[in-house]
Design a binder for these strands. Structure first.
Lengths: 332, 332
DNA sequence: TTGAAAGCGTTACCAC
DNA sequence: GTGGTAACGCTTTCAA
């Protein structure tokens, strides 16, 4: 009837008083713990619902030393593949009952800041979906304690778990396909310098070229952005003896390159120049681009990542590598 | 030298012991609070750094009744505009020192779940970037307590703050432009049913048509996805007396419609059919689409949203509406 | 099955 | 300026 004098959210004590039981009983009722009879639990739950009681996750996290949150370092949501992967991870996490402390990291320094914040909030683990991953991240693992899982990034010297696609063989796949189509002069558009996603794809690509006795590709810098691909295409395709095929380290750059080739340079794709990307972002399949690319099995990777997290801290750090799959469309 | 017996993270007591001060002193040193001399603070900070101490945010949140976190309901990261807005919001929040508890909501029910989780974690406020926003959300505000800010969604009956673009005048802008270009037969592709973003744009569009004495558009259903736009184009542009101009409730559907028109139906854009979207997602400017659209001032909207959050709970709920701006490109 | 009591790691209010 | 001490709201023994 009369509202209590207490201000702020209702506590388990309030519920206890109203239900005529002890505070511990309320706690047990909500924890689904034994030690409370079914009738009392029912009454407690009912009273709690009437009062609008919600257990304070901060308090329970404090005492159990488990916050119930996992950190997620995300970045470049403007990149469709990264956005898709992030969405997929968040959805998968929903099912595990863990809350997500999100941290947007634009660069390496942000990643440091992320570890610090995650530490303060005592996250139970953390995922990193970032192409920027400097070596210093090793310290992250040490300082953080809980399980760290890297998405799409394997760092050899680092004591953290990771899921990633086989970038090296992905690069080979592209080269082999292009060679099979008769191409002999190649260009490669780099992703973020130092990222394994870039260097491995490049390595696999070059190795396959070398194996076939073909000269290495001309290179252009990039950082996984649309403009990077467009600029690279301008530079690489301007000359007279231009490459007949371009491999871009990700789909977005490939789309930029295609647009530049077609609309700025007046070249036909794939007749004048073949272009391939990496990721198989959904927009790669749109007819305007119809981009040949290498698919990353995002769903399986995310599932594995969440499983590894669930397996917990006890595990030795492991890297699960997923096979990359060639997706042939019209651009090459 | 010797590691302490304590397991788990180091606490302020540990630091206090090691620095030869009281635990309260450590607290004050970290809170930048007065009541601790500069020399002692320096020593405390140094010892803390050596020990790797980080204040437990759960504990401080418990006592201050401020978790330092804001909830963000996000959805459809696969939609470039939503992804951009989300990224923008997260970055803006970074600057305010607030952590982000992210919740991915695919539909209305998820939104309910979000309020519950946000409640448990005692978030200091929350943002909702979701096109799915059922009426029930009114209860959200009541149950949550802290400031709620809706992004891109105004709900008349609801006691929550919101930032959004002027969707009605945006719809008018599109109609007027198209009419000026001589179009007289129109089609409209709907977004998520019931969303203000859809109904307002539709309303403005129809009103302007009516004002010019032009019959209302033929309509097609959609839900802001690429496929929706493509399907709609198929349906709307199949007949003989097809519309000469299509207005899609967002850019992604417009791109789907363009692709279908061009590649499946063999129509030229804009010669055979003009197509316009809404949002001005970055990919709208890519030459493959070169899409005429209505820009939402994302940056300004996000800034305003964060400001409103900073202003705090004391404020009366307000809605800030931003002007929409026509962006003319090649598709219309 | 139940309740009392001891923390969890902070902040805030006291005296000194 | 400094150090005790009482909360914050919960989980978890431990007796009854």
């Amino acid at each position: 009837m009369t509202t209590d004098k207490r201000e702020g959210p209702v506590t388990s004590r309030d519920v206890a008083r109203a239900a005529g039981v002890s505070q511990s009983a309320v706690s047990r009722a909500f924890a689904r713990a034994p030690g409370v009879s079914e009738p009392t639990r029912a009454r407690i739950l009912e009273v709690a619902a009437r009062l609008g009681y919600q257990p304070n996750a901060l308090a329970s996290g404090l005492i159990t030393r488990k916050s119930g949150m996992v950190g997620v370092v995300l970045s470049q949501l403007t990149n469709p593949f990264l956005a898709e992967a992030t969405q997929c991870l968040l959805d998968a996490l929903r099912g595990s009952g863990l809350q997500v402390l999100a941290f947007s990291a634009g660069n390496g320094r942000d990643l440091e800041a992320a570890t610090s914040e995650f530490g303060r909030y005592r996250v139970d683990g953390c995922f990193v979906i970032s192409p920027h991953l400097p070596r210093d991240t090793a310290r992250m693992y040490d300082r953080l304690g809980p399980t760290v899982i890297l998405f799409n990034r394997k760092v050899p010297g680092l004591d953290a778990s990771a899921v990633c696609v086989d970038n090296i063989s992905g690069g080979r796949l592209v080269a082999d396909h292009l060679i099979g189509r008769g191409h002999r002069r190649f260009g490669y558009v780099h992703g973020i310098p130092g990222a394994a996603t870039d260097s491995d794809r490049f390595e696999g690509f070059c190795k396959a070229l070398a194996d076939a006795g073909i000269p290495p590709p001309v290179e252009a810098d990039g950082a996984y952005g649309y403009e990077d691909g467009a600029n690279a295409a301008h530079r690489l395709l301007a000359g007279d003896d231009r490459p007949t095929a371009l491999f871009c380290a990700d789909d977005v750059m490939a789309m930029g390159a295609m647009d530049a080739a077609r609309h700025a340079l007046g070249l036909r794709v794939p007749e004048d120049v073949a272009i391939m990307g990496f990721d198989d972002a959904t927009s790669a399949s749109w007819p305007s681009y119809d981009l040949s690319t290498v698919r990353q099995p995002t769903g399986a990777m995310v599932t594995a990542a969440v499983e590894m997290m669930a397996a917990g801290t006890g595990q030795r750090p492991t890297t699960r590598t997923f096979p990359s799959e060639l997706v042939i469309r019209g651009s090459a």
